[in-house]
Nucleic acid binder design. Structure first.
Lengths: 362, 362
DNA sequence: TGATGAGGTGAGACCGGTCTCAATCTTGAG
DNA sequence: CTCAAGATTGAGACCGGTCTCACCTCATCA
């Protein structure tokens, strides 16, 4: 109905040229600001253009030049503030060079991701920024890159070689999390993540190039430093839904020897875990200690304020965008933003309440 | 550098046609699934196509048909979970009809909004979903619509006539907020919003067609019901930055007769106000009551759990998308999602501490 | 048996830009 | 004053699809 059809047809270069009494080529040059154009022609064309309300057709432009002015961004969950913030970083950076962002949400679903990539390439975006949902099944990304498309990964890496990947450095912070907890006297430390993993966690298991892998490894390292080992059965994955998360919490909190501390892999998990803890009437940090990844404002406002690992999410987005722009041949400031996570100690970690100590440490 | 150029040129219909030994027109028909094509030709073309790894060029398609498969979404702040959620709703709904989303963030800046609209139209998006940042300065939107483009507004309305607008119904909930507070005995009620308004608030001031207007009106109505009037100096706008928000809180909390309750216009404001309250060592609800708009998970986890106004943000997004799809001539389920806000009473509203009551009520 | 029409096909115009190429027009140097 | 370099210009091809139109082949019907 509300189709413009012929009715309100947009003015084209040809229209402008006709109105200005010059050739299409000259009008295009004047409008596009390329080639040689006399003052004369320039002014008369400009006049005709805004007389007709001419707006360049970006589609046509992209088609002829082969250069597109949009980039594709693929994330698992925009609703998650983590990605919201990263997206903001990407968008801000990329706009500066005149690109717009085509966004696709995949619900962390591999197939959706693959078809998103496909779709974006069909739209001939200039490049792709992707937070891959799997480290292993990545043929869609590899083939995209193989076909010569500019691809940058962020937040998570994949095993395939040769991918530009922008990630936050978690090794130090994760080790620190382990140390803080261990120093406070915790030994039964739970870890909850929404990452999809087949089967249950085992030491040395391949978790892909995800931040989760680094975070788990950090705690394991802290245990090793302390001459101890972390019970792998306390690492719970696949807590993507409310039910799964509740189940994971149940397994950690309702066992004969419940965990004395929980590390939450992201803010969504933290929200869920906090809810579960509250439901059980447990107090933080007297009954249970909590550490969460991602330092969003609300983490400071809960009672008690949460000890968290802050990460430069916005900067990660910007840096990913810059990496893509570089691939696209743009001159982008060389200095890279440092992407290091750091722990922010607040009040959600305490000493575990005295309880029949299990085996370790004498 | 990583330019595909000629090197890995994408296969085109012409290439496929050549490989299949048929005319370009036939190949196009087979590939595009239109017109009459024999089984014979169909199979040989399909074979040639995936032999060559043919991917249709969406750009070219859009150009020739004049139909685009992307829609533009313009919001003030993606980082804000409110818009993140709405965007999710829009995206989910629109995908179903095969559209992708081109997102532009405006930082609630009018000029940015205008140029975003411009840019998106140049990209020839099929339609626009916009959360306008001003109710008055809307020539960019009006002219877009006048030129025959499909435009749907959401979250906020504008004064210009004839715009499809999808908004949550706040009248009842806002009145209820006023009543709850008034019933609890509050008279000095502060309201904090990030909305940009010139000058300070006065009764009957035009706040545009924003949800904020409804929310303020609701409280005013509750006051009227109680035979009282709301002191307009307690309504603070323009709290967009941390500093501005701090200043607004200072004006409300540090006056001789500080407010006994604060209504926060959105979750970002709530975060800030809670921080300010905490900084002053005030207790909720003993020293001050708080009501916040937007029921995000964290509002239930702070101490005490916040009384909030829940609103169907995701559904609002979906409904906005549907409205646009309808304009675009798609058949979309007729039943509209109900978009009504409702109050969720938790524990952040209490009776104001006894203090020299001001003038009202006996 | 010839007219009718549906199904299948290819040639080529078209969408709205960019860009190459050759023609024309200015210059300034010699 | 002559000539070549450089500026300005227009014609038309091109990008990769869609779509119209004319034409061809059969099967069907009278």
């Amino acid at each position: 109905m509300t189709k413009r059809d012929q009715s309100v047809r947009e003015a084209t270069v040809a229209d402008v040229a006709r109105a200005a009494g010059v050739s299409k080529a000259q009008a295009a040059r004047a409008l596009g600001g390329y080639g040689a154009v006399s003052e004369q022609v320039l002014s008369v064309v400009i006049a005709a253009a805004d007389q007709l309300g001419y707006r360049p057709n970006q589609l046509a432009k992209s088609m002829t030049t082969g250069r597109s002015n949009s980039i594709g961004v693929v994330v698992g969950d925009i609703e998650n503030a983590h990605f919201g913030l990263a997206l903001r970083g990407i968008s801000d950076e990329v706009r500066r060079e005149g690109y717009t962002v085509v966004l696709v949400n995949t619900d962390e679903d591999l197939e959706a991701e693959a078809s998103a990539v496909q779709e974006l390439l069909q739209q001939r975006v200039a490049g792709l920024v992707v937070a891959p949902c799997s480290s292993n099944e990545t043929t869609h990304l590899e083939s995209a890159q193989a076909r010569g498309h500019a691809v940058v990964l962020f937040d998570r890496g994949i095993h395939a070689l040769d991918f530009d990947t922008v990630r936050v450095e978690f090794a130090d912070a994760a080790l620190e999390v382990g140390r803080v907890l261990l120093d406070a006297g915790h030994r039964r430390i739970g870890y909850v993540s929404s990452q999809r993993v087949g089967g249950s966690y085992e030491r040395g298991m391949d978790l892909g190039l995800s931040p989760v892998a680094d975070r788990v490894a950090g705690i394991e390292r802290a245990f090793a430093e302390a001459g101890d080992r972390w019970d792998p059965s306390l690492v719970r994955f696949n807590a993507a839904s409310d039910e799964a998360l509740a189940a994971a919490c149940a397994e950690l909190l309702d066992r004969p020897e419940p965990v004395t501390a929980v590390v939450c892999s992201d803010s969504l998990i933290a929200l869920g875990v906090l809810g579960q803890i509250k439901r059980r009437g447990l107090r933080i940090p007297e009954d249970i200690s909590v550490v969460a990844y991602d330092d969003f404002p609300w983490t400071e406002l809960v009672e008690p304020p949460l000890t968290v690992v802050a990460q430069p999410v916005y900067d990660m987005g910007r840096e990913a965008a810059r990496a893509l722009l570089r691939k696209l041949g743009h001159r982008v400031p060389a200095e890279r933003l440092p992407l290091r996570a750091h722990i922010v100690e607040r009040s959600s970690v305490g000493t575990p309440r005295a309880q029949p100590q299990p085996s370790p440490v004498r």
